[in-house]
Design a protein around this nucleic acid. Structure first.
Lengths: 126, 126
DNA sequence: TTTGCCCCTCACATGGATGTGAGCTTTTAG
DNA sequence: CTAAAAGCTCACATCCATGTGAGGGGCAAA
């Protein structure tokens, strides 16, 4: 039988995403990343998994917890009328949190720039 | 003798900054925040400490470790020719890291917006 | 003096993602 | 067929800022 979506095993997914095998298993444990199991119990992923892993990483790096991401993913997989008010609200909340965080970081970057500027100026007086 | 800078104790600094007493002691342990000790061993801070604590928090929230902040602070306290090349480079490095991070977060926010938009659209079809 | 609050140190706990290693099975390449 | 490479599970370790609690001192108001 020909594989329609040539499945990859965990090592390959790890290589393609740059995410450790350990972490991929963790994502599964947290309900973020599904896998088909072969008879012998090995995980197999379709090509879409690469994207999904990237998404998960982005969310993590934006400060969302695995729990939160788990709540969001269904809305991504099947955006439908089933999307509860709660989930929608949750997304908006996270978005706002992220926005505020970005603003904060921009200010922090300015602080750093100023700090660097001041020090460069002092160096120039050598 | 009149106190020129009326010193505050740790509880007050905590209140003014919103940072826990525990954390303030931790900052000191990490060499980020100095304090004068009274005879009985109690910490006293001058008004400038409030600003410094705020700065530390910003750096932390920008992902710098206490170690890194400790390396940066001398450049803030005494920007002078003594500012080593290494320190300056370090600052620039952190600035760039932060910049890259911000860009990433902006993209992530866009992802979230799109996700929210898609779901709202589906809700509208109810 | 007693009561109450703040401070001190020490040290163990927490959370969340990830690292690491043991012990064992499956797959693959020679 | 055999050995290397890759998977599996389980479970303990790590990092880092912070929480928490024990046990005890300092100091002001009643």
């Amino acid at each position: 039988m020909v594989q329609v979506t040539p499945s990859m095993r965990i090592g390959e997914l790890s290589r393609r995403t740059g995410v450790s095998v350990r972490s991929l298993r963790y994502y599964e444990e947290q309900g973020l990343l599904a896998s088909e199991r072969s008879e012998s119990g090995q995980r197999h992923y379709d090509a879409a998994a690469v994207e999904r892993v990237a998404f998960i990483q982005r969310m993590f790096s934006a400060g969302l917890s695995s729990r939160t991401v788990a709540d969001l993913l269904p809305c991504m997989d099947r955006p439908s009328h089933e999307t509860s008010d709660a989930a929608l609200e949750r997304m908006a909340e996270e978005r706002d949190r992220l926005s505020a965080y970005i603003v904060e970081l921009l200010q922090t970057r300015d602080s750093l720039d100023e700090l660097i500027g001041t020090n460069r100026a002092h160096r120039a007086t050598l």
